[in-house]
């Protein structure tokens, strides 16, 4: 036998800790800049989206009720695993047309950013929460709580840093997420899913769908069990009147640039709860 038979990879969805194909059976192909096929990728349907939200909802309470230290440790461990798979990510980014130097830089920045947000897990509530002066015999505190289930339309470029910039600030506080990734960036997203699957992040905390954001956006904005959507990666041609639906179901809509690294991005998906506690005997 001479030579190896090349095995082209089919990228699957990442739902509830597993890698299913799309329920619809659809796939799309991702080519490199020279037009050669890199891989086939599952194309998620509205039913895959429904399953992903269900998984995210089921995982949310237990993820949020872990201690801040535990969530932080789990996220640090993901950063360690990204570090050990650095070469794989650099090669992946190169295959979709990022030049070698930028690819290395993007992977390193992504890992740094992951660590930066992981570090906030046991700190953001001290910084964002407060003890409020009130005129009466009460302690009055404001404490941040996670919003719940967040849908993220991941930026397509830069694909790795873009996704990580949106993903980590959302999950660090106890939210669970459903990510929708499109085109070439799908490969990076699913590969990050593969890292998460072998880390200690519980199943359902991060769910990754690949496909057409145009297909899935109406279902995202309409879904009553999705508490917020992050549309940072929305394509410029999208008809934004679609987002009016989010007003009818009181869904938070957030859009951010990915080149920032800030505590505000964590507070995007937090709710402030104010508690009155009587003083005295």
């Amino acid at each position: 036998m001479t030579g190896k038979i090349p095995i082209a990879k089919t990228y699957k969805l990442f739902i509830d800790g597993a890698f299913p194909r799309s329920e619809s059976g659809r796939t799309f192909s991702v080519n490199n800049p020279e037009g050669e096929l890199i891989a086939n990728v599952s194309q998620a349907s509205r039913k895959d989206f429904r399953e992903a939200v269900r998984a995210a909802r089921a995982a949310q309470l237990s993820w949020a009720s872990r201690t801040a230290y535990n969530r932080g440790q789990i996220l640090y461990r993901v950063a360690e695993m990204l570090e050990s798979r650095k070469i794989e990510f650099v090669e992946l980014l190169k295959s979709i047309g990022v030049n070698s130097r930028s690819a290395t830089r993007e992977v390193e920045d992504s890992i740094q950013r992951w660590v930066w947000y992981a570090g906030w897990s046991d700190k953001y509530s001290q910084v964002l929460g407060s003890v409020n002066p009130v005129s009466g015999p009460y302690f009055n505190f404001t404490v941040p709580e996670p919003t719940g289930v967040v849908g993220i339309i991941a930026p397509t470029e830069p694909s790795m840093l873009g996704l990580i910039s949106r993903l980590v600030p959302a999950i660090v506080s106890g939210n669970t997420v459903v990510v929708v990734s499109e085109g070439q960036s799908s490969l990076t997203s699913v590969t990050i899913g593969e890292v998460l699957a072998t880390s200690d992040v519980p199943a359902g905390v991060v769910n990754i769908l690949t496909g057409d954001q145009k297909d899935l956006l109406p279902w995202m904005v309409g879904h009553l069990d999705l508490n917020a959507v992050d549309i940072s990666g929305i394509s410029p041609e999208t008809d934004l009147t679609l987002l009016e639906e989010t007003a009818s179901n009181v869904k938070r809509v957030v859009s951010r640039q990915v080149n920032e690294e800030s505590l505000e991005l964590i507070s995007d998906f937090l709710e402030m709860k104010t508690v009155w506690h009587p003083i005295g005997r």
């Binding site: 909802r57 009553l224 069990d225 999705l226």
Partner: peptide, 14 residues
């Protein structure tokens, strides 16, 4: 049933 009536996926909050 909510899903059939409204056209959007519903959730346990409802």
């Amino acid at each position: 049933l909510n899903r059939l009536d409204s056209g959007s996926y519903s959730g346990p909050d409802y």
